[in-house]
Computed example of a mutant assay.
Amino acid sequence: MTPDDTDRAILRALTEDATLSSTALGERVGLSQPVAWRRVRRLQEAGILKGRRLDLDLEALGFGVTMFLGVKLAAKGRLDLTAFERAITAIPEVQTVEHVLGLYDYRLRVIARDIADFERVLRRRILTLPGVGNVEANVLLSEERRSGPI
């Protein structure tokens, strides 16, 4: 399925507010409620619209620090990748795990209450995982978000 201009308008509207009802969505993009609902359903079935997420205010929940970690594994066998991926996804502070090509093998987004909490997570959980070699940390200073799909 190739999205048309109406599909892109629907995706843009849902990116701005994923809680829109099909009636409100239809009004926003100039469609009737049933047509808007069918379009959303078709985008879901095609795998273009994968779901809707909550956008939590991590700072309000007590998580004031976000770090990005570059992780290079010491060994790169298939078992090492699988063991690392299984172990890293079990750590709740690790929000995203991205297998990347380049200087590091993985890029992680890690949240913590403060720097001391991050250090605890890093030392007790991440650095003890199977296969971990080098780790580089970068602190998130600010984040800008672009609205709308590509």
Rank of each mutant, 00 (worst) to 15 (best):
L103E: 14
I115F: 14
G47E: 11
L31S: 06
A60M: 05
T66E: 03
D117M: 05
T96K: 12
R124K: 08
H99V: 06
A116K: 08
Y106S: 02
V94E: 02
I91T: 00
D80L: 09
E93V: 02
R125H: 12
R53M: 14
E119P: 03
R78S: 00
R86S: 15
V97E: 06
T66K: 09
G70T: 12
I111L: 06
L54H: 13
Q44E: 13
L73P: 00
P92Y: 05
G70V: 01
R107E: 09
G70D: 13
I115G: 12
G102I: 04
I126T: 01
G77T: 14
V94H: 13
K72W: 12
A74P: 09
Q44M: 08
D105K: 13
L108F: 07
W37A: 15
L56R: 07
L122I: 05
E45R: 14
G47N: 12
P34T: 06
R107C: 04
K50P: 05
V121W: 00
R120K: 08
G64R: 15
I48C: 05
Y104A: 12
Q33I: 02
Y106I: 03
L101E: 10
K50S: 10
L108H: 04
A60L: 11
L69E: 07
D57W: 11
K76S: 04
R123E: 15
F63D: 02
D114I: 09
S32H: 02
E119N: 05
E85M: 15
R124N: 08
G64W: 13
R38C: 01
G47T: 06
R109T: 14
L73G: 06
L122F: 15
L73I: 04
E119L: 12
R124A: 09
L108D: 03
L49S: 00
K72N: 13
G62K: 03
Y104S: 14
R41L: 04
K72G: 08
Q33F: 10
A60E: 12
S32Y: 02
D114R: 05
A116N: 07
Y104M: 12
E93L: 01
A46M: 02
F63E: 03
I111C: 01
I115N: 15
T96A: 12
L43D: 10
L108N: 06
R53W: 12
L54P: 06
R109C: 13
G77F: 15
A116M: 01
G47V: 11
G77E: 15
S32I: 00
L108Y: 10
L49Y: 07
P92L: 07
L101W: 08
Q95T: 13
G51H: 05
R125Q: 11
V71W: 08
L101R: 09
R123M: 13
D55Y: 04
K76H: 10
A36N: 06
F84G: 07
F84Q: 08
D80C: 01
F68M: 11
D105E: 11
R113H: 07
A46H: 08
T66C: 00
T96C: 00
V97Y: 09
D80A: 09
V121A: 04
L49C: 02
V65Q: 12
I48H: 10
R53P: 03
L58H: 11
P34D: 08
M67R: 14
A46D: 15
V100T: 07
F63I: 00
V94R: 03
Q44A: 10
